[in-house]
């Protein structure tokens, strides 16, 4: 098993955190993981992205060429990554912000209006975690329990209320897709 996922969006949409959480959850499930955030001039004022590889074997390269999954949070991300996804792969797109749709017919597309869903949460925050909930529901890369645990480890230590609201966001996204 070797699964490559790319997360992409505006700086501030929390895409690096999505990657970090997924990689942490993968680590908890005793898989090999790598997480490579975009950096430097690449992210100044533009899109940020983060690629995560989860595998039962040694990971040769943290660069996700031809990822199985792409999680796209804004329009520029769709243009950049829609043609890189493997044939038969899956795109999760933030339908609150992305108007166009991929023209390829060989992909599975899940639309999650995360910004609209976030309005149901206190503080109108956590759209990235909502997307992460939807993502693990459909991909099963890591379990809901492990991801909850990862949220607790990363947010809970600092502030239990942040963990609680993120857990709610995860649940919201997880329940959104059938």
């Amino acid at each position: 098993m070797l699964i490559k996922t790319v997360f992409s969006g505006f700086g501030g949409q929390g895409v690096i955190m999505m990657g970090y959480l997924l990689a942490t959850a993968g680590m908890y499930e005793e898989k090999n993981v790598t997480c490579l955030p975009s950096y430097g001039a690449e992210v100044r004022g533009g899109t940020a992205n983060c690629t995560v590889v989860i595998s039962t074997e040694e990971i040769a390269s943290p660069v996700a060429s031809e990822p199985e999954f792409a999680v796209l949070m804004n329009n520029p991300s769709l243009f950049r990554f829609q043609n890189q996804v493997q044939s038969g792969g899956t795109i999760f797109l933030n339908s609150s912000m992305i108007e166009s749709r991929p023209i390829r017919g060989d992909l599975e597309i899940y639309e999650v209006p995360v910004n609209d869903l976030a309005k149901k949460l206190s503080g109108n925050k956590g759209s990235n975690i909502i997307m992460l909930g939807a993502f693990i529901k459909k991909t099963g890369v890591v379990s809901f329990e492990t991801m909850t645990h990862a949220l607790k480890e990363i947010f809970g230590a600092k502030n239990p209320s942040i963990f609680k609201s993120n857990k709610a966001a995860l649940q919201l996204g997880y329940d959104y897709l059938d």
């Binding site: 942490t24 680590m27 908890y28 005793e30 480890e153 990363i154 230590a157």
Partner: peptide, 15 residues
Amino acid sequence: SAQKLPLRCIVPKVL
């Protein structure tokens, strides 16, 4: 802070 890990992790690792 992520050093505290679940029991099922044999070796304490941190991402």
